[in-house]
Design a protein around this nucleic acid. Structure first.
Lengths: 331, 331
DNA sequence: GTGTGAGCCGGAAACGTTTACAGCGCACTG
DNA sequence: CAGTGCGCTGTAAACGTTTCCGGCTCACAC
């Protein structure tokens, strides 16, 4: 240290007012010795870490990648760093993570659990740090602790897809869903049933086949579906499943987009990159990430604000895999 | 606090030996008041944060996603958390990040810069924290500061692809590369030239077309290539470009795998999911991530160890887009 | 000449831990 | 019974900052 108190040094380094002479001496000393302030000590004193966390099942899933990218962008823009956790959809692990927030190593968390259990709700109720949940929280959340919530609207999204297919003349619409005990799986199943009903189509259990939310499972499930039924369209609960379905259909010699229309969900990069290009219902993953991050920052800025619940509207992106108009023009 | 000194409390909570009576009282008090140790204070005292960082150009790029996933896995397994940074390939930003490590908010960094400049090397030389670089560091690194380095072998990888294509009877092998001023772009260009040479094929500048490492650029570049030449095979510098090329080829009415063979690089999930499935040279992105994380942990454990340089061997994964045997069997 | 306020400064406390050190009691040994 | 050593405990320092508070100097106004 060269000639001045610690307090003064701190003041000039944070621009809190010092005489020009003091400022010069501190800056010179700092530069000569290569001083860099210690972030951990600063965090301890400031009671904030300038870090956010994201917890999702699989940080390699395109949906979560899109979400993560959006979150990282708004976090970095606001001077926060982002920490990622792959939970593997393990409930105990997710609860442990939530309880771990009490250690205060991050300022806030965005979590997108694929299942939301009572254990999750209990952990959320006692969490000392802002958390925003991406995915549907029950309506009767205890209002004591405000938990912000951003949702996709799978139900409406499935409706968009079914309406589009029906408008294209499709009547036997298959559905390859993810596990029914997951939040998105359950919502999409309900959406499928309701949309069929609204369109006046009968529900045929032969036409629905469960899978996991992955490529291989989607491919296998579609193969099973084709073995026992003749759908003229297939809706898939996500794009990975849809690409699997695409392969199964092509392998079975089906002309996709003509004989069988195909629609995925999430509108990931995959949809544009597959061939034929895949129609897909965008549930706004990037948008949800962006909103989640913004809600988190807003709560950090104003802890007392009322809990927000925002849901992003789905949109249908029509491409060749279900583009009936193109089919009619170019048979 | 219930009846015992802070030191004793710390000791029982860390299992450092205390009488059963003290232990009972501390645990009871902790449970009753819901005590959770503060990670920041612990970090300040321990001089470690139990956190690693990963910095890549774009955390959405499938190559980096695979890398990140592997790193997160080994980090989490060793009790470390992972922080991610999207650098946008901005040199100033990357240097700033490196210099920021002096703030000690992470214990170590894995960085994969797409270009490695003198500014990078200078920053690496003064960095106070372990860093492992994924990508090729120059051979004459100053040995004072040991920087671990894991590399792909693009040069050999390109050779594998060319040899495979030549073995399949291809003679006019196009090449859609990424920017030549990037580390991978330069290496792949050199590999292409050397492999042609080794195979006794002439170099025809008409057959090579630069692009960016992305889908749309790959598609556009391939279109340009097809407009002026008639390749019987195309090698692409990564899978995103290759999928773009695939679309351009299909749109031009080419039978991919027969008329024109197509090979990508990186062997991302995309390769398996495109149709026809894409042959691709695996450069081991997940493996490189895993190794990088392990090197980092090893250096954290033993800071003085000599700098390691490991390179992972490429492998060629042949699929339908270049499977000449299949073509000959099923003309 | 005295009082007042502004500007700057240093001392010290605080953030929440871990750990070196010394002291204490006790059992065991010779 | 004295000596030795062990197991446990509390005190206090340390990690590296920021900030509160009181004191000093100085200019200015009355």
């Amino acid at each position: 240290m060269a000639g001045v108190s610690i307090a003064s040094a701190s003041r000039v380094l944070n621009g809190h007012g010092a005489s020009v002479e003091t400022e010069r001496r501190v800056r010179e000393a700092a530069a000569s010795v290569g001083y860099v302030p210690n972030a951990v000590a600063r965090s301890l004193q400031a009671q904030r870490t300038d870090m956010l966390a994201l917890a999702v099942e699989d940080i390699g899933n395109p949906v979560y990648v899109a979400m993560m990218r959006a979150i990282e962008e708004v976090a970095a823009g606001a001077g926060y760093r982002l920490q990622v956790h792959a939970t593997g959809a393990d409930v105990a692990g997710e609860v442990e993570l939530l309880d771990g927030l009490a250690r205060r190593y991050v300022d806030g968390l965005v979590i997108s659990p694929i299942r939301i259990t009572d254990a999750h709700l209990a952990a959320l109720a006692r969490v000392p740090t802002p958390v925003v949940v991406v995915g549907s929280l029950p309506d009767d959340m205890p209002t004591t602790k405000p938990i912000d919530n951003v949702r996709a609207d799978s139900h409406t999204g499935v409706g968009l897809a079914i309406d589009h297919l029906v408008a294209g003349g499709r009547r036997r619409i298959g559905f390859v869903n993810g596990p029914l005990d997951t939040v998105p799986g359950a919502a999409r199943q309900a959406g499928y049933l309701d949309a069929l009903d609204a369109a006046g189509l009968p529900f045929d259990p032969e036409l629905v086949e469960p899978a996991d939310f992955h490529y291989a499972a989607g491919r296998a499930a579609t193969r099973r579906l084709l073995d026992r039924a003749e759908p003229d369209a297939i809706l898939c609960a996500n794009d990975l499943i849809a690409v699997g379905a695409l392969h199964a259909l092509l392998a079975a010699g089906k002309r996709v987009g003509e004989e069988v229309a195909l629609v995925g969900m999430d509108d990931t990069d995959l949809a544009e990159m597959s061939f034929p290009q895949l129609s897909s219902v965008s549930l706004g993953s990037a948008e949800r990430g962006r909103l989640a991050a913004e809600l988190l920052l807003a709560r950090l800025a104003e802890p007392g604000r009322p809990a927000q619940r925002v849901t992003v509207a789905p949109t249908l992106v029509v491409r060749a895999s279900s583009d009936t108009a193109a089919k009619q023009e170019n048979p």
